[in-house]
Design a protein around this nucleic acid. Structure first.
Length: 103
DNA sequence: TGGGTGACTAAGT
DNA sequence: CACTTAGCCACCC
């Protein structure tokens, strides 16, 4: 039987894997979906999860992908047709008004 | 038992 | 729009 901390991880991964292609959820949204407010805790889980989960479908409240993973995330967004918007700084950000998914 | 860290967030300047 | 501040909570020493 998994302990309580493992349960948090299981819940987070379950929600993330349920996000359909072309859609995203913010870290806070994922936390809320499992009855928590630990957005940073979700980030820690994702950082440890690896390539087994569609991590690029979890973005910040601003729609930007996690720091240091922008390029990799952009490839997936183009492949899935996720609605994007270009920033003045040359980066990209997901249009949450169109792509936000509610678990 | 206590303190630092971080793939966060909202509000203020 | 860029930057700062304070609040938040799970995880690791």
């Amino acid at each position: 039987m998994p302990g309580p901390s493992a349960e948090f991880v299981e819940r987070v991964l379950a929600v993330v894997e349920a996000i359909p292609p072309g859609h995203v959820m913010s870290y806070g949204d994922v936390a809320a979906a499992i009855g928590s407010r630990a957005a940073r805790g979700v980030g820690q889980v994702m950082a440890h999860a690896g390539a087994e989960v569609p991590w690029w479908r979890v973005v910040r409240a601003s729609g930007e992908p996690p720091v240091g993973h922008e390029a990799r995330a952009a490839e997936h967004y183009e492949a899935e047709g996720t609605p994007l918007r270009r920033t003045a700084a040359g980066g990209i950000r997901v249009r949450l008004d169109a792509a936000r998914w509610h678990g």
